[in-house]
Nucleic acid binder design. Structure first.
Lengths: 220, 220
DNA sequence: CTAACTAAACTGACCAGTCAGTTCAAATAG
DNA sequence: CTATTTGAACTGACTGGTCAGTTTAGTTAG
């Protein structure tokens, strides 16, 4: 069970020591992330073998187990890795509060760019996210919460300035927008490559424009 | 590769003879659909064995191969089966054109009910839908087209009566609504069981209300 | 009587995880 | 400056097990 490697095993290391120890390791992990993102996005977590991942990364199978504790662990870290990238992009949108609707629109645009750039991650996410008893259940819950918080605060920004339909719960709207980003992004890549980024953003933004009410602001 | 069964094999029968031949077969197929829908929804197509499906359906493994040519074939027919049910519900909404927005709302409600009743089908759909080279690719393309057509005509119904934002392409909106139904439905079941049907419908309907413009109708 | 189904054994491929051994750059010693 | 040691990083053959699909001889029910 325990990976009793001859040397110290970085497999178990959560996140710490990012500067001192690793020499080749980080480059190797990066290659493994890229290779497995690609393969797993295409054929699913269960449909890809560790050997394939190792070969695609130009590394031996043992190296995968040296760097990660298990296939499952690799995928968990892969999920975190992808979410880190997406989060960074979403947070790059300055909430200058000039117009919260514009901020929202840019966030959705960033999300669409991310889906276009990492479609395999998006596929992995939607493939595994809603499985009921799954390894990664906790991972998903945590990452989902982080992402929804960002979207939620953008919605709050809008609700603070515009009058807003009280019949629409913030939580459901978060979910709808979040989900629409993934689905619209994936659908564009899979079935409608001719669709533009702007069309996609506009379609998702429709729910925000439907959320703000047509009456003039109720002057807080 | 070729399924050379001893007895006459209904395995290859696409859709024809639904009345003449089968005596026990239909009941068995039904049981197999239910069992595999459940299992595959939970653990994914690749994560479930044919033996498990057979046992769960209270049937022998041979029967699975008697009724279906292969695991892959079973899943393809399972997809069609689920879409048939969903389509029937969507089409049950009378397009009385009294208010196309109300019709749209009821359609989304029907979709939410379906997701609540067959969450495993929804999981199967989102898990496999966007895989790039997959068996079932053609099946998905066809079924997706059928479903989008129904939603599209509901959108057209709205666009025929209300003034509508030309910046939002019908295709992207179809996709966004279609996808939101799956994602919101699944999220409700997985992460937010306290969310009501109405909240979910309202969140998805927001995109329709954002699609119709705030100016008074342009009087066709 | 025959289509539908059973039960069980079997094949051949495939795969996650293991482990004994190799490499090599940097540290330490002479 | 050279020799030796250390250990992290990596290798790839191997193991124990699983699984899709097949086959066969017999049973059940319409």
């Amino acid at each position: 069970m325990t990976t009793s490697q001859s040397g110290g095993s970085p497999a178990g290391s959560g996140d710490a020591e990012k500067k001192l120890r690793p020499a080749r390791t980080n480059a190797t992990k990066q290659k493994l992330f890229e290779a497995s993102m690609e393969l797993i996005g295409e054929r699913g977590a269960a449909g890809v073998t560790v050997d394939e991942i190792a070969t695609a990364a130009g590394v031996s199978k043992g190296t995968v187990y040296y760097n990660f504790g298990s296939k499952s662990d690799l995928i968990a870290q892969l999920l975190r890795h992808g979410v880190d990238i997406l989060m960074a992009r979403l947070l790059s949108v300055r909430d200058d509060s000039a117009d919260p609707l514009a901020a929202m629109e840019e966030m959705i645009g960033q999300a669409m760019d991310f889906m276009a750039e990492y479609p395999s991650f998006a596929r992995l996410w939607v493939s595994e996210n809603w499985r009921t008893p799954s390894e990664w259940q906790d991972t998903f819950a945590e990452l989902r919460g982080r992402l929804l918080a960002v979207i939620g605060s953008a919605i709050d920004g809008v609700a603070a300035v515009y009058p807003v339909d009280p019949a629409v719960s913030r939580g459901s709207l978060e979910t709808a927008i979040f989900g629409a980003c993934f689905v619209v992004g994936l659908d564009r890549q899979t079935y409608n490559p001719e669709r533009t980024r702007e069309q996609s953003v506009a379609a998702i933004m429709a729910s925000m424009r439907g959320y703000v009410m047509k009456q003039p602001p109720a002057q807080a």
